[in-house]
């Protein structure tokens, strides 16, 4: 008797398998296109968190994806593609900070290199209130311990599963859940003290 075998594969694993299969079939362009389309948001989101600057994050994203495209043939699969890209992105950002240290040493830094939190916010067409809240959230997140902040961001913004975050950060899923729980608690406590919370409550009470 034949038994149906169901292979449980997450979306991410499915995409990764598709990319590696395309590489094995010699369809390098298709593999790179899939890689870029699938992971560009993920890489950009991490770069934006690290650099706090839209254009810097775009440049880092391009550089990371370019490097991944160049070296994907040698990707050893010791980790997932997502984990590999996460590490490349973090290291690319660190590398950029080091370049700035070098430039700063020579006294050749300029305004463009300064961290620009305000410009990392939403689009100009969005309401000023929303922009203010996004800036406020940046400050709230900055107050969280690094592990809680990164767990919250990977879970809430990037919508990764605890299994994926665990693979990326090397932290157990139990610890990640605890980190996320405390991060949400602290964010909620901050929010409840803010004008945004009061404004939201007032406007919804009126309704």
């Amino acid at each position: 008797m034949l038994h149906a075998v169901t292979i449980h594969m997450t979306d991410s694993e499915g995409i990764e398998a598709e990319i590696l299969q395309a590489l094995r079939a010699g369809e390098r362009d298709r593999a790179i296109t899939t890689l870029v389309r699938r992971y560009q948001r993920f890489v950009y989101s991490i770069a934006l968190r690290q650099m706090n600057h839209v254009e810097d994050a775009q440049d880092i994203t391009q550089e990371v994806l370019l490097r991944a495209a160049r070296f994907i043939d040698g990707f050893g699969q010791q980790s997932s593609l997502q984990t590999w890209l996460y590490r490349i992105t973090i290291n690319q950002c660190r590398s950029e900070f080091r370049r700035r240290r070098i430039k700063s040493f020579f006294g050749i830094g300029n305004d463009e290199d300064q961290i620009d939190v305000a410009s990392s916010g939403p689009l100009p067409s969005q309401h000023a209130e929303g922009r203010d809240f996004d800036d406020y959230m940046q400050r709230v997140l900055a107050k969280l311990p690094p592990k809680q902040r990164e767990t919250f961001c990977l879970r809430f913004y990037d919508e990764l599963s605890y299994e994926q975050i665990s693979a990326i950060t090397g932290t157990s899923q139990g610890a990640l859940k605890a980190n996320y729980h405390w991060a949400v608690k602290k964010i909620a406590e901050h929010l409840k003290q803010s004008e945004f919370y009061a404004h939201w409550s007032t406007s919804h009470d009126a309704e």
């Binding site: 790179i32 296109t33 870029v36 389309r37 560009q40 948001r41 950009y44 989101s45 934006l48 839209v54 994050a57 775009q58 994203t61 391009q62 994806l65 370019l66 495209a69 916010g121 939403p122 689009l123 969005q126 929303g130 809240f133 996004d134 959230m137 809430f156 913004y157 964010i187 929010l191």
Partner: peptide
């Protein structure tokens, strides 16, 4: 938080719109 995430997602979509072409 949901509104904030929604704005952030829109911002990321906009910032990465031409990334494939750039790469």
């Amino acid at each position: 938080l949901a509104s904030h995430k929604s704005r952030r997602d829109a911002s990321i979509d906009s910032a990465t719109m031409s990334m494939s072409t750039r790469v």
